[in-house]
């Protein structure tokens, strides 16, 4: 049941894109952890750059999108930059299409 809800949340979060990279936060590997306790959802996520003005909107977007998923009672989203995001977090199929260097 919990795994199913996490899967549905991840699917719902595909509507939230990083405006710079143009891909969704799931494929970009921004979601570090999603935990569910009886409908109370806690998400730990990141963004590409600390201090980026888009980070607050990303966090709010993730919260808004998660709240719309059936079975979610409350949402708490924490933005962290530890560990920092790197392109290695991106789904491999998406990484090359974004023009990232393999060495990174």
């Amino acid at each position: 049941m919990t795994d199913d809800l996490v899967a549905r949340i991840r699917e719902a979060l595909r509507v939230v894109i990083d405006p710079e990279l143009g891909h969704n936060v799931v494929d970009l590997g921004f979601l570090y952890r999603i935990t569910v306790d009886q409908g109370d959802v806690r998400i730990v996520m990141t963004a590409t750059t600390k201090g980026c003005p888009a980070a607050a909107f990303l966090r709010e977007g993730v919260a808004a999108s998660t709240a719309q998923v059936e079975g979610v009672r409350s949402v708490d989203v924490e933005m962290t930059f530890d560990p920092p995001w790197t392109p290695s977090c991106i789904e491999p199929a998406v990484r090359s299409s974004l023009g990232f260097a393999n060495v990174n």
Partner: peptide, 23 residues
């Protein structure tokens, strides 16, 4: 472009599909 995107589409994130800044 970046600030225009944030102003227009930032509040809609998570609720609606949005374009990229490059769009």
């Amino acid at each position: 472009a970046f600030l225009t995107w944030l102003e227009t589409y930032g509040p809609a994130m998570g609720r609606l599909p949005t374009p990229r800044v490059q769009d």
